[in-house]
Structure formats: C-alpha cells, structure tokens
C-alpha cells in the first residue's frame, strides 16, 4: 500500500511518519540529532527551561532547525496546572512559532501521571485559541472524547508510566479509545521495545511517541531507526488485516433449528 495516501493528519498538516521522538535524556545533542535523522521522524518534542548562562550555545536547537522537514512540538512539562501550561505554550510559540503543543501536566514528580482535570482545562483554552493541542493523558476513553469535543488535534494516552518501559500496559483501554475516537490516537510514554510500538499500530493507534526507549538504548540512532521500521510494519499490518484468531468450539446444542422449517416470508 502506498504510504503517501496514508498520512497522519493533525489539523491541517499531514505527516508520512507515524513515529514521534522526544529529545530528552540523550547523552549529547549530537547523539539526539543522529537519532532524529536515522528515524526519519517529522515531529520532535522539546521542553522549555530557563536559559543557563553556563551553556550559552544552542546545541539542541541548531541541529534540529537545520534538518529538513522536522517540526518542533513544544511540551509543557514542568507545568503543574492549566494556567502554567497555557503560559508555557505561549512562551514556546515565541520561540518557534509552532501551533503544535503537547499539553503535559504532571503535578506529582514521583510517578509523573498526567492530571486529567488540569489537562482538560488547558486543552480547552488552547484549542479555542487556535492551537493544535496534543494532550498527554491517562488512558481514559471518556476523557479522550471530552478532549475531542473541545477541539484537540489528537489525544496521547500513555501506554505505561513515563520512562517505565512497561510497554502497552493500558492495551485494553487503548482499544476502547481507538474504537470511539474521531481524532488520531498517539501512544505516548511507557514503550521499551519496537515490538510494542508495532503492537500499538496493529491495534489501531495512529502513531507512537518514544523518548527514553531511544535515548537509553545502547545505540540510540540504531534504536530510533528500529522504532521507525516497527511503526511502519505495524501500520502496514493494520491496513493489511490480521488473520482471525483460532475458531471457537461449536456448542453442542444448536441454536438455529427453529429456522430449518418452512421459510416464512
């Protein structure tokens, strides 16, 4: 099947890559840049931090801006509530002009679970203000529909806790979100292995976002490329249609004998 006619659509933008990559936790900006290049991703997330006089160069941004076809998606990590997330989005827009924003609000630094109430409020305000809002959320099907209603460009439910590498711990809830959603569903957080990314695409998720799984790999650029292949394979498998699971045993008492008499029309 042709990849060109199978784009990931976010707002008015279409992307051929269904892998999104975070830029945190890499050993160096150089390794990060090589991972981005090796994976062919078109959307990378970046975070905001205070300018540090001891690191006065733009090591992170310079290589990313030099890459053709890479869009920056600022996140709002560090925000503890809706107000701070909205402020972070506005600051990020001054830095890169992007309308894409990943709304990420996790008030508890130990487990980094997203706050659904503050996330909803920030998403509502930012979407009404014209942003392409990509909210990072717990795998809650009702929350996903509520965010769709306020105009989010996608929802990004977690597969498992950030950085945990537990994979698709939320698989059954993700399936419900996928079945009900009218906007793209992007699994964000928790993945460790490319096979888990492939599984997410096979079950109907539209894309995945990984960071630690690549940054913490032995060879980050090679792992980034492996994730890109897995995502493409999972998507192709989804479109090709999986084989049926084994047949169920036939029950002993038939249910359709009442239909075997004369046909009543």
């Amino acid at each position: 099947m042709n990849q060109e006619d199978d784009a990931l659509v976010l707002g008015d933008h279409a992307y051929t890559s269904r892998l999104l990559l975070g830029t945190g936790k890499f050993a160096s900006a150089d390794v990060m840049a090589r991972a981005v290049a090796a994976s062919g991703v078109q959307i990378v997330t970046v975070a905001l931090r205070r300018f540090d006089r001891d690191r006065p160069d733009d090591a992170l941004l310079t290589p990313l801006l030099a890459m053709e076809g890479v869009t920056l998606m600022p996140n709002t990590s560090g925000a503890r509530n809706a107000e701070e997330a909205i402020q972070a989005a506005r600051i990020a827009r001054e830095l890169c002009g992007s309308r894409l924003v990943k709304v990420e609000i996790h008030p508890n630094p130990r487990h980094l679970m997203p706050d659904p109430i503050e996330t909803y409020e920030a998403a509502r305000v930012l979407a009404a203000d014209g942003w392409l809002v990509m909210p990072y959320i717990p795998p809650d099907p009702v929350l996903a529909k509520r965010l769709e209603e306020v105009g989010c460009a996608s929802v990004m439910p977690l597969g498992a806790a950030i950085g945990s590498g537990q994979g698709l711990a939320s698989a059954e809830l993700l399936k419900i979100i996928v079945r009900e959603a009218c906007i793209p569903v992007i699994v964000d957080a928790g993945l460790r292995a490319p096979s888990q990314a492939a599984a997410a695409l096979e079950m109907g998720c539209d894309a995945v976002l990984v960071n630690t799984a690549v940054a913490d790999a032995g060879d980050p650029p090679a792992m980034a490329a492996a994730f890109a292949q897995a995502v493409a394979a999972g998507r192709s498998a989804r479109r090709a249609g999986l084989m049926p699971v084994g047949q169920e045993a036939q029950a002993s008492s038939p249910l359709t004998t009442f239909l075997q008499g004369g046909e009543r029309v």
């Binding site: 920056l72 830095l95 950030i162």
Partner: peptide, 10 residues
C-alpha cells in the same frame, strides 16, 4: 524577568 529556551524533552 525570565529568559527561557528549548531543552531536550519528551
């Protein structure tokens, strides 16, 4: 005054 820039993040 706060001066902010991008850093690595997921």
């Amino acid at each position: 005054v706060e001066l902010l820039t991008f850093a690595g993040g997921g």
